[in-house]
Simulated scan of single mutants.
Amino acid sequence: MIETRGLTAAVEALDAMAKAANVQLTSFKKVGSGLVTVIIEGDVAAVSSAIEVGRQAHIQTGGELISSNVIPRPHSELAKIL
């Protein structure tokens, strides 16, 4: 997942991630106060690679990266929260 401040930065990151690796968009959440969280899924290597590309791509938009994280093999209960 990547969390940014600003929709444009989140869309830019998602576009770069989808082009860089075999990942799928799971969720795109507008949290409030300009925070947007993009959640992707795929195999761990693809997601790790995509997150790094997304982090770099978002910088070009001038957006603010709040956080990013890769959770390998998330517990099934976690899906209920996200």
Rank of each mutant, 00 (worst) to 15 (best):
M1L: 07
M1W: 04
I2T: 00
I2F: 05
E3H: 04
T4L: 13
L7M: 15
T8S: 05
A9E: 07
A9I: 02
A10T: 00
A10L: 03
V11K: 00
E12T: 05
E12K: 06
A13K: 00
A13N: 01
L14M: 10
L14C: 09
D15N: 08
D15V: 04
A16Y: 00
A16R: 00
A16L: 01
A16C: 05
M17Y: 03
A18E: 15
A18I: 10
A18K: 10
K19H: 09
K19T: 09
A20W: 09
A21S: 12
A21V: 11
A21W: 07
A21E: 08
A21C: 05
N22Y: 08
V23F: 09
V23R: 07
Q24F: 06
L25F: 06
T26M: 15
S27Y: 08
F28V: 06
F28I: 06
K29L: 11
K29G: 04
K30E: 12
K30L: 15
V31F: 02
V31W: 01
V31Q: 11
G32I: 09
G32P: 12
S33P: 09
G34S: 13
L35A: 11
L35R: 12
L35H: 11
V36D: 07
V36C: 14
T37M: 10
T37L: 10
V38H: 02
V38R: 02
V38K: 02
I39Y: 08
I39C: 10
I39S: 13
I40P: 03
I40G: 01
I40K: 01
I40S: 05
I40H: 01
E41R: 13
E41T: 07
G42D: 08
D43M: 05
V44S: 08
V44T: 14
V44L: 12
V44K: 08
A45V: 07
A45Y: 02
A46N: 12
I51S: 05
E52H: 04
E52W: 00
E52L: 07
E52Q: 09
V53N: 04
G54K: 01
R55Q: 13
R55P: 01
R55T: 03
Q56F: 00
A57K: 04
I59V: 10
Q60K: 15
Q60P: 00
G62D: 02
G63H: 02
L65N: 01
I66E: 00
I66K: 00
S67W: 00
S67H: 13
S67N: 13
S67V: 00
N69A: 12
N69T: 13
N69Y: 11
P72G: 14
R73Q: 10
H75I: 07
S76A: 12
S76Y: 06
S76G: 10
E77P: 08
L78Q: 06
A79S: 11
A79E: 11
K80H: 11
K80A: 14
I81E: 08
